[in-house]
Computed example of a mutant assay.
Amino acid sequence: MKNKLSDLNNHLFAQLERLGNETLKGEELAKEIDRSHAITSVAKEVISNARLVLDAQRQYDSGNMHKPHELLEVQKT
């Protein structure tokens, strides 16, 4: 897997550091704020998707799901 949730965490903290840059003013600050909104929007979707896969894995592992949909990539552990 190329991307991991830890990578997302690193991106979010990097963005937080950029927002904390007190030398950003005016248009540069506005651009960084817009970028933050875009990043957090995508991050919420990634987290939501990860939660869905985790819930499906739990259902499968508990025997409540007999044949998971292949899109969920759920495997017996």
Rank of each mutant, 00 (worst) to 15 (best):
E45D: 05
D7N: 15
D7R: 13
L71T: 11
S48W: 04
N49P: 11
R18Q: 08
I39Q: 05
G20M: 03
V46R: 01
L24M: 11
T23D: 13
E17S: 07
Q59G: 03
N10I: 10
K31M: 10
A56P: 12
F13E: 12
M65P: 02
S6L: 07
S36T: 11
E22W: 06
I47T: 13
R51K: 15
H66D: 09
N21I: 01
V53F: 08
L24T: 10
H37Y: 14
E45G: 07
K4W: 04
D7M: 12
Q15L: 03
Y60C: 01
S41R: 12
S41F: 15
M1Q: 03
A43G: 05
L16W: 01
L29Y: 05
Q75M: 04
S6E: 01
A56L: 00
E17Q: 13
H11N: 15
D34G: 14
R58V: 01
E28N: 09
G20S: 05
H66N: 13
Q15G: 06
K67R: 08
E17W: 05
A56S: 11
G63V: 01
K44C: 11
L71K: 15
L52K: 15
E73R: 09
M1D: 01
A43C: 09
N21Q: 08
Q15C: 10
L5K: 06
T77S: 14
K31G: 11
E28Y: 03
Y60V: 00
N21S: 07
S6D: 01
E17G: 06
Y60A: 00
S48A: 01
T77V: 11
N49C: 12
K25S: 15
R58D: 04
E27C: 05
E45C: 09
R51V: 14
L71Q: 13
H11T: 15
V46L: 08
